[in-house]
Amino acid sequence: MKHFFLLTCIFTTMNILAQKEVDLPFESDPNVNWATAEKEYYSDIWETNVVTNVAIPRLEVFEADQPNGTSVIVAPGGGLYGLSIDSEGRDVAKWLNKKGITAFVLKYRLVPTGVDGVQEISDESVNNPAKIGERVTPVLPLSIADGLAAITYVRTNAIAMNLDPNKIGFMGFSAGGAVTMGVTFNYTAANKPNFIVPVYPWMTVISDYTVPEDAPPMLVICASDDPLKLAKPSADLYSAWLTSGKITGMHMYSKGGHGFGMKTQNLPSDNWIVRFHEWALTENLTKPMLSIIR
Rank of each mutant, 00 (worst) to 15 (best):
M1E: 08
M1I: 10
H3C: 11
H3P: 06
F4G: 10
L6Q: 15
L6T: 13
N15H: 12
I16Q: 13
L17M: 13
Q19N: 14
V22A: 09
L24Q: 03
P25C: 11
E27L: 14
P30G: 09
V32I: 15
T36E: 14
K39H: 14
Y42C: 06
N49T: 15
V54C: 07
A55Y: 06
I56D: 13
P57I: 02
R58Q: 15
L59C: 12
V61S: 07
F62C: 07
T70C: 15
I73E: 00
I73V: 13
A75V: 05
A75D: 08
P76D: 09
G78F: 02
G82F: 11
L83N: 04
D86E: 15
S87I: 15
E88T: 06
G89F: 03
V92D: 04
K94F: 05
L96R: 00
K98Y: 09
V105C: 09
L106G: 01
L110G: 09
V111W: 03
P112G: 04
V118L: 13
I121E: 05
D123Q: 11
E124F: 11
N127K: 14
N128E: 10
V136I: 14
V136F: 04
V136H: 01
V139C: 11
S143F: 07
A145L: 06
D146Q: 07
A150I: 01
I151Q: 02
V154H: 03
T156F: 00
N157K: 10
N157V: 04
A160M: 04
N162H: 13
L163R: 01
P165N: 07
K167C: 12
I168W: 02
F170C: 05
F173P: 01
F173Y: 14
G176R: 03
T180M: 08
F185A: 02
A189F: 06
N191D: 15
N191T: 08
V197E: 06
V199A: 11
Y200I: 00
M203G: 03
T204N: 12
V205K: 07
V205F: 07
D208Q: 11
D208H: 13
V211K: 00
P212F: 05
A215Q: 01
P216H: 01
P216I: 04
D225W: 09
L228W: 09
K229H: 14
L230E: 04
A231P: 00
K232A: 11
P233S: 09
P233M: 07
A235R: 00
D236F: 01
Y238M: 01
S239C: 02
I247G: 02
M250A: 14
H251D: 13
K255F: 12
K255L: 13
G256I: 00
G257K: 05
M262C: 08
M262S: 02
Q265E: 10
L267R: 12
S269W: 02
I273C: 03
R275D: 12
W279F: 15
W279K: 09
A280F: 04
A280E: 06
T282H: 13
N284K: 15
T286G: 10
I292N: 07
